[in-house]
Amino acid sequence: MKILYFAWVRERTGVAEEEIALPEGVRDVAALVEHLAGRSPGHAAAFENRRTIRAAVNQDFATPDTPVAPGDEVAFFPPVTGG
């Protein structure tokens, strides 16, 4: 599956985009965050405070209990500040 990072989440992970194999047992956004946080110290720093992270699954805003499946595009980013 494709994982995307934006703004300071991208700066902390050190990558804008990565391709990962969805581990068995990871079925929602919350479990995916747990998994990704273990990838590197940068990822751990990015996901340090879970409440400051927002997510989108297949380009729709998601919540921690939104399901994820192989082939999905999942993005992580801070609360939006456009307009």
Partner: peptide, 27 residues
């Protein structure tokens, strides 16, 4: 439209400061 696009469109602002450096705008 303005109220919703401030909170429901995926944009992130970073401020470049005159004294150098930059910071992300907080929601």
């Amino acid at each position: 439209l303005m109220d919703w696009l401030k909170t429901k469109a995926p944009f992130w602002k970073r401020e470049e400061l005159a004294e150098g450096g930059s910071r992300w705008v907080e929601a």
